[in-house]
């Protein structure tokens, strides 16, 4: 017994290290293997508060760029509006047809922290549960997709970025509707990988990739990017590199998507 105590005393430094390191590594492994455990709480709020202060300052540097983008988007929306009003058919639908009712609802939010250099990148938004945001909602920006909400507190939301090894979303080729999965390989913040497209499909550089609408997160046809290169891997499926439309270095305002029929859709799938 005395010897044991002596031994513990002699190696207490390394023993304590092993103990603490086991705790830390097991946390890290769990974090790596599963999606970020919904670990948002008091401490997250403090971090978000700091990030918001920093962001409210640094936003000034991006004002010119942000204004330019907003004005571009305005023009685009105005054009769409024109088209809707001119098309008698669409106007008719929204007036009388209860089947074509609104399915998605968008909430604008500001990005207060964002990374692109890690393997598991996250964004933080300045809106949360009090503003109607819930976990597992899609997030987009005018250019394309951004990510999925994971943890939500009263006034902040953390978003699993497309640039995260845990991110997967169903996507399709715009020209022929063949669908596959978009994921990130951790290599370059400007490109993602589209997989599971069968080898007989015609794919060429420049093709547009959009969301498929099969998941309840994103509406169909949200732009993702364009094909840069495609080659067949392991005989059956393409390995397609896609250049993202979204510029993750310049994200200021994003839209969070509420799918009004999500519960209905998921209920059906479970049955």
């Amino acid at each position: 017994m005395r010897n044991l105590l002596n031994l513990i005393y002699r190696y207490h430094f390394s023993l304590l290290f092993l103990l603490l390191e086991t705790v830390a590594v097991s946390m890290g492994v769990r974090y790596n293997l599963y999606q970020k455990a919904k670990f948002v709480g008091f401490t997250e709020n403090i971090a978000a508060f700091f990030n918001e202060s920093v962001s409210s300052f640094t936003d000034y540097f991006h004002l010119v760029e942000t204004n330019r983008r907003l004005s571009l988007e305005n023009t685009m929306l105005r054009n769409q509006l024109q088209r809707v009003y001119r098309s008698d058919e669409l106007f008719f639908f929204s007036e009388h047809d209860t089947i074509h009712r609104q399915k998605y609802f968008f909430t604008s939010a500001r990005v207060i922290s964002n990374t692109v250099t890690r393997m598991h990148n996250y964004l933080t938004l300045d809106k949360g549960r009090d503003q109607g945001i819930e976990p597992d909602m899609g997030v987009i920006c005018p250019e394309g997709i951004v990510g999925v909400t994971t943890g939500v507190t009263g006034n902040f939301t953390s978003v699993l970025s497309v640039l995260n090894l845990n991110f997967h979303v169903s996507a399709k080729l715009k020209k022929n509707d063949y669908f596959g999965t978009i994921s990130w390989d951790g290599q370059d913040y400007r490109t993602v990988i589209l997989s599971e497209i069968p080898y007989h499909v015609d794919v060429s550089p420049g093709d547009t990739v959009v969301t498929s609408g099969y998941s309840s997160l994103f509406p169909e046809g949200i732009p993702i990017g364009t094909v840069i290169e495609a080659h067949v891997e392991n005989g059956n499926f393409y390995h397609i590199r896609v250049r993202l439309f979204t510029d993750f270095r310049h994200l200021t305002y994003v839209d969070v998507i509420r799918n009004l029929q999500k519960e209905e859709q998921q209920k059906l799938r479970q049955e």
Binding site: A24, M27, G28, V29, Y31, A37, F39, F50, H120, Y122
Partner: peptide, 10 residues
Amino acid sequence: FEHTLGLHTS
């Protein structure tokens, strides 16, 4: 602050 768990600690 980094939104990671255990990585920096270990």
